[in-house]
Amino acid sequence: MTSPDSNVRRICDQDSVESSVAELASYVLNNLPANNRAAIVGIRTRGWVLAQRVFKRLADSGQAGIELGALDITLYRDDLSTLGSQPIVGKTEINFPIDGCTVFLLDDVIYTGRTVRAAIDALIEFGRPAAIRLAVLVDRGHREYPINADHAAIEVETTADNIVEVRLLEVDGEDAVDLITR
């Protein structure tokens, strides 16, 4: 994955990932709409893992009535026409009405803003949400589209040749965030 001379700096260990997830959960909790339904929707793959963790925290704390969904944005990407691009198509699971719902959209990293653009397009195919709030684990800057997170648990200064690698227990075997310099 990384060449031997690349430089890896650990930004978050297991404890700080967990406390960041707790922070995302309290952001959702503090911003739940008073009058309409709410849903937590994660962008596959790691945003979906985060969404399930946040959902579980809210459920464990007795917060009832929140929906949970997964979004696969592959078919909405803007780079599909470039040669040799053939990302694997995953499943979107939005099994509740989006109309009038406040959707908390979760992802691991916000970078150019293109993923979030695709996610919004994918989401509004299902209806007209009351609002979409974006919550991410890491904001690494360098936006190319005018999109910002409503809440970012961690903000990191990066350069264009950095890679921010979020590793989550469920898919990567550990919780960590690494900043890799190529």
């Binding site: 893992v49 399930q52 459920a59 009535g65 929140i66 929906e67 995953g90 509740f96 469920e170 898919v171």
Partner: peptide, 17 residues
């Protein structure tokens, strides 16, 4: 609704497919 959501499997190993 809440019950059915809690029944969703939490990811084990592969969250993808």
């Amino acid at each position: 609704e809440q019950q059915s959501n809690l029944d969703l499997p939490l990811p084990t190993g592969s969250a993808e497919s």
